[in-house]
């Protein structure tokens, strides 16, 4: 327990050399670190969802407000749910439900394809880290 005061004295001996302007410069430096990380390391965030039916673009929606989209296909209607920053196929008339089981897509480039009903949902972003992602 005698280590506490010694450590504090040691730190104080170093901190004595920090002047007011130094703290300002350090604050700015940390700000640059955080700002650059936020600006450069968010490539995977999607901006919008692209819904295709029968190979043609059916709808492009911004991922800003929650929304439900019904997309008609040869088997029936595929329901796509949009939420801020993510989207999913909520219901699909296809037999195997692969696109529904993929769940929420939240990365730019992610794609859910409901092949039997010829509907696909893809997320696009300005600086996408991947061209295409599927699971």
């Amino acid at each position: 327990m005698s280590r506490g005061p010694a450590l504090r004295a040691w730190l104080a001996a170093w901190a004595r050399h920090l002047r007011a302007g130094d703290l300002l410069v350090l604050g700015l430096a940390v700000g640059v670190c955080v700002a650059s990380a936020l600006a450069l390391w968010q490539g995977g965030r999607p901006d919008k969802a692209v819904i295709r039916a029968g190979g043609k673009v059916f709808l492009e929606v911004d991922l800003t407000a929650p929304r439900l989209v019904e997309v008609p296909g040869p088997l029936g209607s595929t329901r796509i749910e949009i939420q801020p920053g993510r989207a999913r196929v909520a219901a699909d008339p296809g037999p195997r439900q692969y696109c529904v089981r993929q769940g929420w897509l939240a990365t730019a480039g992610a794609v859910a394809i409901c092949a039997p009903n010829q509907v696909s949902l893809a997320l696009a972003g300005r600086n996408a880290a991947y061209d295409s992602l599927s699971y």
């Binding site: 002047r19 302007g21 130094d22 410069v25 350090l26 430096a29």
Partner: peptide, 12 residues
């Protein structure tokens, strides 16, 4: 100004 900005500022 030296009074406010020391070697730490220079270094960073």
């Amino acid at each position: 100004p030296r009074r406010v900005f020391g070697p730490v500022s220079h270094s960073v």
